[in-house]
Design a protein around this nucleic acid. Structure first.
Length: 280
DNA sequence: GAAGCGTGGTG
DNA sequence: TCACCAAGCTT
């Protein structure tokens, strides 16, 4: 976490776990991971099934697979040390623009702009006078503007990025910003324009009844089976997996499709001989 | 650029 | 109840 003594690997794991997941849910899982797998080589050597069980209910379990791939790559291609170079960070599995910049700034104190959803929202309001960023991904113009207002010193830069993220998370929030308490409302272009609402809001993701929900139920059943079963005898039958994947009132074939996609994503394995579904 | 990908908390 | 949302990444 962002505390003294946390290794680059610890920070990398923390940032990946934090992708689309509230920090309060990340904290306990991260602590367990650090105890089980304190260095990249430890995670690289772990059974993938254990990695997925310990991922618990953080969501988006593909992140756990990518983190293990990332650990293997760091061990084999970087001598076991998390690279400090931004381009090399970006090249790691599961590490995108946000995570690479977060590591470069928070861990390595480089002068770089972190453009997470919070900072992008703050900048859109203050500079552009619009409620929400117009594009789903950061643009070159956004990045250049964010870099232009960065402090010169790398340590100050880390504090700057972190402060902006927390400001967006606590004050300049997505749904109900506390504008009366905002210290820069006099200079905020969105305030000056009277807080106009965004015409087009990003369409919100469906979940109920989706393949995603079906996949989640299979994974939940497998986590339960693996955390209680003696080693080597874990897993569930294909029939149980399909039953778990069958949602009330679901369309024909959804359960099969969900299971097939889990296998294709290597989140689960299917042993045809025994007809059992297991974590990989 | 858009769609797909989990899970739990909240207003 | 239910839509919305949370330190994004990959295809």
């Amino acid at each position: 976490m962002r505390a003294d003594g946390v290794t680059p690997w610890g920070t990398l794991v923390f940032e990946v776990m934090s992708q689309q997941t509230p920090l309060v849910r990340v904290a306990p899982v991260w602590l367990r991971w650090m105890r089980l797998w304190p260095a990249p080589a430890d995670l690289a050597d772990a059974p993938t099934a254990d990695v997925l069980v310990e991922w618990s209910t953080l969501g988006y379990p593909s992140r756990a697979l990518r983190l293990q791939q990332c650990a293997t790559r760091i061990r084999d291609a970087h001598g076991g040390a998390v690279p400090t170079d931004h381009a090399q960070l970006l090249d790691l599995p599961g590490v995108g623009g946000y995570t690479a910049a977060a590591l470069a700034s928070f861990q390595f104190h480089q002068r770089i702009a972190v453009l997470d959803v919070n900072i992008r929202r703050v900048a859109s309001r203050v500079f552009d006078g619009i409620e929400l960023p117009a594009s789903s991904a950061p643009t070159k113009a956004e990045r250049e503007r964010a870099e232009a207002v960065l402090p010169e010193d790398g340590h100050e830069c880390a504090a700057w990025n972190l402060a902006l993220m927390e400001f967006g998370a606590l004050v300049c929030t997505q749904r109900s910003p506390d504008c009366p308490a905002c210290p820069i409302r006099e200079r905020c272009r969105w305030a000056g324009r009277g807080y106009p609402r965004a015409a087009k809001r990003p369409r919100t993701q469906q979940w109920r009844g989706t393949d995603r929900q079906a996949r989640g139920r299979v994974l939940a059943a497998l986590r339960a089976a693996h955390s209680t079963a003696p080693r080597g005898r874990a897993g569930i039958s294909r029939a149980e997996a399909l039953r778990a994947a069958t949602l009330p009132g679901a369309e024909e074939g959804q359960a099969q499709r969900a299971l097939a996609s889990l296998i294709a994503d290597r989140l689960v394995a299917y042993d045809e001989a025994s007809s059992r579904i297991t974590l990989p």
